[in-house]
Amino acid sequence: MSFLILSQILNGFATGMLYALVGVGLTLVLGVLNLPNFAHGTLFAFGAYFTYTVANLTDSFYLGVLIGPLLVVLIGFVIESQGVRRLYAAHHDYQLLFLFAIALILQETVILIWGPVGFSLLPPKFLAGAVDLGFTVYPKYRLALILFTATIVVALYLMLTRTNVGAILRAGIENREMVKVLGININKVFLFTFGLGAYLAGLAGGLATPIWGLTPTMGFDILPISFVIVVVAGLGSILGAIAAGILIGLAQSLTTIWWPEAANVVIYLIMGLTIILRPQGLFGSR
């Protein structure tokens, strides 16, 4: 039993790190642009499908994960510069409806291009197979995934806390008007943030393909989870999004041991508890 629990904890970390990537992306856009990005899930799906296509064309999973998410960034740039930018002055309701519409359009586009049937993608040869950890035999790819995403998350955190760009983004979350007044081109900041959010969603999608496979609805499935992460984390908290992502990944995979059907519901219980006990979120200040 304890072996099962230990390997489920590892699984939870693998899932949780992917959730953290998606959650940080959504948090950045929500914090800096003050937008609920309903297209975030479909960007995740596009990341997976682009990775799949590039990996098949070049015969290299690594190239797929490298190039796939960058193509998603291009989509993000188009959405921000052609649509979202015109709506900053508009009411929340319309921004939300716009992003919902983009989600619908992208979702249907996935089905148009790749068809309604899902695919699977094998991990690269080097990472295929399993390794004996002593207490359990564990897939190599998942271990590599945990390490790689942990590196990305740490790098991202350092970028946000130690660099000028990061300072501008954090300032944007705190007070957008002030950033503008200080003479920083806020349009560029918004474009960069949206692109970064899209990249993180796309990267998570690409990295997830060997574990979860590809289905056209994968974007719609992850979207609510990423919103739960934001609520649990506290609006605009990067550290919170990382912690909440891991927490929810762990909770899901541990629930699977005892009651698999409830695994999808337990994350909402965590959200409910957070709202009661700590309405501002785990790491939120407002």
């Binding site: 929500l30 003050n34 609920p36 929340h92 939300l96 609510p224 919103f227 739960v228 934001v230 609520v231 609006l235 059907e261 409830a262 999808n264 519901v265 909402y268 959200m271 709202i275 309405p279």
Partner: peptide, 23 residues
Amino acid sequence: RTGLYFICITFAFNQMFYFIAYS
């Protein structure tokens, strides 16, 4: 909660009941 938070929470509850109906 208000504003964006309110939207996120209602959205998440919606999906919770969807999953209950689904499972």
